[in-house]
């Protein structure tokens, strides 16, 4: 076991960016995507002749802001899921010869996994703050942000399990489907429960807290056995 390379350094070795740098950049991108989508709809509303108060109240009464948040959180998460380092891809052979070998790869992958969770948490906090401050009200407010955050983690777990059996290309297409289905599930959950928090959020939250590290470790083990060499 090579202990000299930290998670952040392993990520810098693999990505050219340290963990804090990547989290910051991708969080800003995620928040930027969310803000752009909101601004676009807001401007369309204004162009339609409505005043800003009306546009905001219409947004608050619909799932528009909630949906945009889902897209922003899911999109960045799925983009980061593509940070794989197969041997045939550029850099793939270089990474197999560096200090620590597979251990360094595992650290870089773990750093990416942690970063994905952190970025999802940051965009969740950002959307929650916009809602609480009244700048961008959501139909179901904090319940939406928490539900989406939990379901993004569920999607990460499912994708981890799928990646154990599928190639990176096939996994990507399945991941798109999974994130889409999870998005639909989020809307159904929110509409059915009327935005009331409960067991529907609690059970997946507790489950993913356990399953995410477990599935990641299992994925690493399978990767080492089947694909590393």
């Amino acid at each position: 076991m090579n202990n000299r390379i930290t998670l952040s350094k392993a990520m810098k070795l693999y990505n050219g960016r340290s963990m804090p740098e990547l989290i910051l950049k991708m969080s800003l991108l995620s928040m930027g995507v969310y803000a752009l989508m909101l601004a676009f709809i807001f401007l369309i509303g204004l162009a339609g002749g409505d005043d800003s108060v009306t546009v905001r109240s219409e947004m608050a009464g619909s799932l528009m802001a909630d949906s945009f948040f889902m897209i922003s959180a899911g999109l960045i998460n799925i983009i980061m899921a593509q940070m794989t380092y197969e041997k045939h891809m550029p850099g793939g052979k270089f990474f197999r010869t560096v200090k620590g070998g597979f251990d360094t790869y595992k650290k870089a992958s773990t750093a990416i996994c942690i970063s994905r969770v952190a970025i999802a948490a940051i965009i969740t906090a950002f959307a929650s703050l916009l809602h609480i401050s009244g700048i961008v009200p959501m139909k179901y407010g904090i319940v939406t942000t928490v539900t989406v955050f939990v379901l993004v983690l569920v999607a990460m777990c499912i994708c981890n399990f799928l990646s154990m059996r599928l190639s990176s290309t096939v996994s990507f297409f399945f991941a798109l489907i999974i994130y889409f289905v999870i998005g639909i599930a989020a809307v159904i959950i929110l509409e059915v429960t009327g935005g009331t928090p409960g067991i529907v959020q609690l059970v997946p939250a507790v489950t993913t807290a356990v399953l995410l590290p477990v599935s990641h470790n299992m994925l690493m083990k399978v990767y080492k056995e089947k694909r590393w060499n």
């Binding site: 050219g16 891809m89 550029p90 850099g91 793939g92 052979k93 270089f94 010869t97």
Partner: peptide, 9 residues
């Protein structure tokens, strides 16, 4: 070691 192509991203 250096590969024939795409050694780095």
């Amino acid at each position: 070691y250096c590969s024939a192509a795409n050694y780095f991203p």
